[in-house]
Nucleic acid binder design. Structure first.
Ligand SMILES: [Mn+2]
Ligand SMILES: [Mn+2]
Ligand SMILES: [Mn+2]
Ligand SMILES: [Mn+2]
Lengths: 216, 216
DNA sequence: TATAAAGTTTAGCCAAGGCTAAACTCATTG
DNA sequence: CAATGAGTTTAGCCTTGGCTAAACTTTATA
């Protein structure tokens, strides 16, 4: 069993992409100083969880990736479980799962997955990796560059910013919501959207965080 | 928020009684060396959580006691929650709660308590302290020195030894079980008990861990 | 009552995981 | 192509929470 710190490092590197991740980028994501990150990256490299090229960046080895996926699986199962049983709001889930994810045994993970019927998406629409790291490939698209005048289904909302999340919730935007882009403001990329009977404007920065799908 | 180590120390001191707790006793309970315990006790004393008389022992201050009760509350609520939702067996609960108890926010604690209807006993029959450390006084008695030939109701079983616990479970002894002591073996304090149609013998060491109540 | 044993504390060590300040590398760019 | 500045690493420090070995107290025993 890896430490809380190590699990969070691996998850962060995983989230920041498959490319080489910079020290500073990782530091700000973990809210830690760059020098501390360098030191930990050296340890993770030593452990065979990370590949590191000095002055260039770090990436996960296969072993590191599997461990990261395991943490992500626990996180997303927990969010789903807390939502389902206790009815926590979508914007309260992330912060709780962030701590609980490190305290979940394999057995409890399995019991929760079974209880939930082995879900493939969490309450934010994020895919839940399988018990052996299986992750189906993404086909959802950012709302920010989706076609106009088509019926779109919201598939994913962000999980880590509870302000954005509660704004979206208040405007009835969450996985399953049907909406249509009416127009796009060229000057700043903001979009005007119809949801049911109401029309709202969504800034491009937020629209890029919402993922959708649609029929051909 | 106190560290995992500190929370476990406080809980252990609390469990080991209201008297002064010895270094060695605490060390073996926490599976740690006595010298490490002494060092931590000094820190806890510094923090105002513990009173310490050198070469005599340590006891909780009121603040330390309240913190210990908070950990115990989280532990027992979690056991109840996992039992209720996932149906975990009584002998699997403790080890899971032992880690999760340190990752539970006040909000999640409250949500779980409410979901469960503010229970006062966990699945082992142990009383659950209230949100402000309220704990009703115990009236349950050890089965080992209970009256003979009366209908007794099992109120509490131990939670930390899964071997004993599954033996008890296999013999249908758990909170709510009705039983009657038929006779007591004077030579070793073992008792012979009728549960429903079957009769079994319970050693005195196990009988002292099972608590019962009965009508006058 | 002197001494041995049991229990406790102190001293000194270590690893994990933070920090700051200083040194280093590398990609610009003047 | 040399100098600057952004980003990264190194050096050295700190706290937490373990450990062992040695010293110290207290208690029990001869
Ligand atoms: Mn986390
Ligand atoms: Mn999520
Ligand atoms: Mn614990
Ligand atoms: Mn219990």
């Amino acid at each position: 069993m890896y430490s809380v710190a190590i699990e969070d490092y691996l998850k962060s590197i995983w989230k920041l992409g498959s490319k080489d991740v910079g020290t500073q980028e990782l530091a700000s994501h973990l809210d830690i100083k760059p020098a501390s990150v360098t030191k930990m990256i050296l340890r993770l490299t030593e452990m065979g969880l990370v590949d590191h090229t000095p002055y260039k960046g770090a990436s996960l080895t296969r072993r590191g990736e599997l461990e990261a996926l395991s943490v992500v699986r626990r996180h997303r199962l927990l969010e789903t479980f807390l939502s389902q049983t206790l009815g926590l709001a979508r914007d309260e889930l992330h912060v709780e799962a962030e701590r609980l994810e490190h305290a979940l045994s394999k057995e409890l993970e399995a019991a929760i997955a079974e209880y939930l019927g082995n879900p493939t998406r969490d309450p934010h629409g994020h895919p839940i990796p399988g018990p052996n790291g299986e992750l189906y490939e993404e086909t959802d698209l950012p709302l920010s560059d989706s076609p106009i005048n088509m019926t779109l289904t919201v598939m994913q909302v962000p999980d880590n910013d509870s302000n954005i999340l509660s704004w979206l919730e208040n405007n009835n935007i969450y996985p399953g919501t049907k909406l249509k882009i009416i127009s796009r403001d060229d000057f700043d990329g903001g979009i005007n959207v119809r949801i049911g009977l109401s029309k709202i404007r969504i800034s491009s920065s937020i629209a890029s965080l919402v993922k959708i799908s649609f029929e051909e």
